[in-house]
């Protein structure tokens, strides 16, 4: 093989490598994963539920009441204090009792959702829960964005 031919083959190899590199770069630039309208990843998860719920007052302190713990006696075991939030994932309800004197017009709800799920509408600030006869509803949307469940929040005020 003469030197001119060697040079030609070398140039060919370099050009091929460059072409391959460009192709790889182009492929890498495309989106591998689908995202929704909020820029959130759409995953394969179909679970759709609320795992915890909290309500904060204007002072950012929880307004949810808790039962008083009962100490153990010689015949009965101790009963610990529990928060008065009942989340029913079948009936899609959240029953919450708030303390006497809670300012229902200015509450910050906090939801804990299953992995990859999202909430609709989004919580952007204070929410008015004062109309107890028209309870608020929030929808949970699953990670694959195919399941949507409307939860209703029933607030009662401690008497």
């Amino acid at each position: 093989m003469n030197s001119a031919m060697k040079k030609y083959i070398n140039n060919k190899i370099v050009a091929s490598l460059l072409g391959l590199l460009t192709l790889v770069s182009m492929v890498r630039c495309s989106h591998d994963y689908p995202i929704d309208e909020d820029g959130l990843l759409i995953t394969g998860r179909g679970s759709c539920y609320v795992s915890n719920f909290e309500l904060l007052g204007t002072d950012f302190v929880s307004v949810v009441t808790s039962t008083t713990a009962i100490p153990a006696t010689s015949t009965t075991p101790a009963i610990p204090s529990t928060r008065n939030v009942v989340i029913d994932t079948t009936a899609l309800t959240i029953n919450v009792e708030v303390a006497l004197g809670t300012d229902l017009k200015n509450l910050y709800p906090q939801f804990t959702l299953v992995t990859d799920a999202k909430l609709d509408p989004k919580i952007t600030g204070k929410v008015d829960f004062s109309d107890l006869s028209n309870p608020k509803t929030y929808a949970v949307i699953s990670g694959n964005r195919r399941v949507r469940k409307e939860y209703t929040i029933y607030v009662t005020v401690q008497q």
Binding site: T65, T67, T68, A69, I70, I79, S81, E97, G101, Q158
Partner: peptide, 27 residues
């Protein structure tokens, strides 16, 4: 100091309060 219902009823606290004169008489 409100009358507390027996356990497990939640703690009922009123204690120190600042209330507008026109507020609901419950306060």
């Amino acid at each position: 100091a409100l009358v507390q219902q027996p356990a497990p009823a939640p703690a009922l606290t009123f204690k120190h309060a600042l209330v507008a004169p026109a507020a609901d008489p419950v306060y």
